[in-house]
Design a protein around this nucleic acid. Sequence first.
DNA 1: ATGATTTGACCCGA
DNA 2: TCGGGTCAAATCAT
Length: 257
Amino acid sequence: MKSCQQKAMETLLHGHGYANQLKHIMDHSESDSSMEREDLANSVLHCFSDALSILIDTNHEDDDQSNNSSPHDSSPVLEKPLHKRGRKTSMAESSDYRRHESPNPIYHDGFLWRKYGQKQIKESHHQRSYYKCAYTKDQNCEAKKQVQQIQHSPPLYSTTYFGHHTCQLHQAYATFPVDTSDPQDSHMIRFDHPNPSPHQVHDQNQNHNQIHPKDEYMSSPEKAEDWSPSHWMSSEVAHAVEAFGFNPFIRTSTDLS
DNA sequence: ATGATTTGACCCGA
DNA sequence: TCGGGTCAAATCAT
């Protein structure tokens, strides 16, 4: 069941990303990022728990193929829509979506997003932000996502992805150099490599629509400044793309069943 | 100057 | 008419 492996892989990669962020903070922490560390640690645990539940569910599926139950429903990563009032064709009720809840909003999910709207949702204390893939125009990529804080204390953010990426991110991955200048961070890829080749300059120009997480969600402006322009990405993500022959962040409609 | 974000207006389905 | 989703002009950041 490849799609389940993909889901598990994706979740693990999310967890790995969080772990990398945590490591980055711990490497550079001076004092006041304890909350952020705690959030990230919780995210890491959350992702690993999700991945484990997916894998366990997959085993159950293999054990009992004839049973048409939907084991994914138990995973918070694959939450089904909360049936709500509103138009039937609303994004949340389309079949092609996935929802992820975490203590902090997901900005660095491997894709470049452009914010195109923000709205106060009725019966919610927090605004909902709307993002499109940065390649919507260039490559007709129809992927979208919504980010909304759904709980204040402890903070909980819901990130909902709609559609799937048709942009050629594999190529983008292939062009991003591994930054080996810092031995401590040699396993990381910097999107804003200090000495980009002409090819990379082209890609950077294409990627100008990256999200600047300067909005209300970032608890630390210093960290936001540190992370957002760089768009850190673990090289393991790129390796997974090569090794598995798929981008773990790209979801197909079959993954969503 | 250029590109991204913000935010009020508009669209459309319930 | 209401409310969620999107557009696009204004504003902001680099």
